[in-house]
Design a protein around this nucleic acid. Structure first.
Lengths: 341, 341
DNA sequence: TTGTACGCGTTATCAT
DNA sequence: ATGATAACGCGTACAA
């Protein structure tokens, strides 16, 4: 008897109260006398009762879960340490709240939209973390349409009802450029992400602004798909120019690493002939040859803070935008003064 | 009116049948005449009715989700392309089945156990994919205790009631050794994962066996934690030996890449002075200098097949072990004949 | 504080 | 064989 999992009714019966009161006691709601609450709680723990997530979900119309949809080519995701760090941060905030992460990885934007719809239609999540924002991002309107709570990683370029959790990555690019300018470079290139991605275009713009501020020309700002392959290809093109750059600012570490290899193959010594900087600096850059000067962005903390904000949004609180510590330059061996001509 | 999401009761009323019959019709159960089933289905689609996952979960006691708990240091996960590829494969099998992945990332084994318990106590998943198997892995018994369905990625070293989905990675190690032996190497080292991890010890054992078969000594088999940092440290130690190896077989790509950097810094040319091979070869190795000879394991397909098997287990089918295509050597530039002495 | 309707399918029991 | 009825799963919320 009672080998089955106990239900709220069992607790109510043993404690000699009603189901409703047990629910109130458990959720710290008013209307329960102190002694009664005490008795209910002790009976519950004696019986080993835990509320059923499924029943609670049905009646409260909540999933107690948040979603993350990643829409990039798997190959690119695999090379980029960004997502594991982000997910680790999400988990840190989720676990103590008793919630879980539902992760979906899709290859293109069409599948991405379908994935969000599925998540909502099947009541899988109460909210989502929107990452890799794009220009005029359709997901903002989609989340609104679907009645989904959300937070964005970064500021969208369109009005958004959702709090934005941001890291000033522009500061990181500016720091990288300032670092190179201070070293004496005057011909600096930028290998950035797709301009459709907001952080792609924002990093590019801050690169151009930083160059302009230093009185330099910014004609060498190239767009890629963030893949190592593109990083390698573009680097080869840059170095084949009649007047190649003496420094390249990359928008992620995989491209910077691929770029270094290409340059070295082409006979450039790094940093003697070419300086290189990466972005989102993970551990990886510590173990390249030379080690990679990069810009660090505390990705894990970003994930934690975003999740924290999302849980508040879901709880109906008024949540303001959160601005995290700006990206910081981590100088290592891949950057030095330009070669003498 | 009826602006709310329609329920099964609405469908039943409009179709002029009972709730139960609607359920039967939808789930292709016997006891519904063809015409009635047809009418019910058309009414359902007219009304745009989709069964509520929450209600269905409550009454069927199913979560319609599978879990993956990753227990490694976030830094190590970030550098390793294994998990993104695995997850991409999982997603491929999950999406058409209308199921989702609940992902948990924890730092240590204690948190790992707690995570599985949470997943079950909160009815989050119907089954789990067990990866990174360890010797005498407690998770087998835990899954049994918790009544969880499961599949293992690889064969456990203890009796297991769960199907194993395996890739013969030993064949990959053997191929790497054979490749190096054929090139003329006689002093080959192995930098492997923790021996507590089954694939760590199995790869080490097959390394030793392959060496023995070639009549070579295998004293240089070192254990690491799979991190780039460890890969770098161990490589430095190996190269500082009075008689350093002329080739090193690494058990993952991040360690191989870190190892190459360390060797190059120490003045070794690769592959002239030292040959290097990686494992789980992702795209990464294409963009190092030199490009990295590695062993490829179709990780994505592994995830897909494992998920497929898990869904069958959950459905109560008898599932046999699945053996995927063996790991294959992908020769690139980092391996060549040994230096002349 | 209690009683009870409600959320919404699933499934066992009955009736025809 | 076809279909209806009702119990069930388990909290939540509101009227009494």
């Amino acid at each position: 008897m009672m080998s089955e999992r106990p239900t709220i009714a069992d607790v109510a019966r043993v404690a000699g109260v009603s189901k409703g009161l047990v629910s109130f006691a458990l959720n710290d709601k008013p209307g329960v006398s102190v002694e009664t609450r005490q008795r209910i709680l002790s009976v519950a723990s004696e019986l080993g009762w835990k509320p059923s997530m499924r029943a609670r979900s049905l009646s409260s119309r909540r999933a107690y879960a948040v979603g993350l949809v990643i829409a990039r080519d798997p190959g690119i995701i695999a090379a980029d340490p960004f997502f594991p760090a982000l997910i680790a941060g999400i988990e840190i905030a989720l676990a103590p709240a008793g919630q879980v992460l539902v992760l979906s990885m899709v290859a293109d934007e069409e599948a991405e939209i379908a994935s969000y719809r599925q998540l909502v239609e099947n009541d899988r999540v109460d909210g989502v973390i929107l990452t890799d924002l794009r220009t005029n991002d359709a997901r903002i309107a989609l989340a609104v349409e679907l009645g989904l709570s959300a937070v964005t990683l970064g500021h969208p370029d369109i009005p958004s009802p959702f709090p934005a959790v941001t890291v000033d990555d522009a500061a990181g690019i500016r720091a990288a450029v300032a670092h190179l300018v201070a070293l004496g470079h005057t011909r600096i290139a930028h290998v950035g992400g797709p301009s459709r991605m907001l952080h792609g275009s924002r990093r590019r713009n801050s690169f151009l602004a930083a160059l302009a501020e230093a009185g330099l020309s910014g004609e060498l700002a190239i767009e890629t798909d963030f893949s190592s392959a593109d990083g390698a290809r573009v680097t080869a093109d840059l170095l084949a120019l009649a007047e190649p750059p003496t420094a390249i600012v990359y928008s992620n570490d995989p491209m910077a690493i691929a770029g270094m290899s290409v340059a070295q193959r082409a006979g450039f010594s790094i940093p003697q002939d070419l300086s290189v900087t990466g972005f989102d600096g993970s551990d990886l850059g510590n173990f390249t040859n030379p080690s990679l000067t990069s810009v660090s962005t505390q990705v894990q903390e970003w994930g934690r803070a975003a999740t924290d904000a999302l849980l508040r949004v879901i709880a109906g609180e008024d949540v303001v935008d959160v601005e995290l510590a700006p990206a910081q330059l981590v100088p290592r061996e891949s950057s030095a003064g330009p070669p003498r001509t």
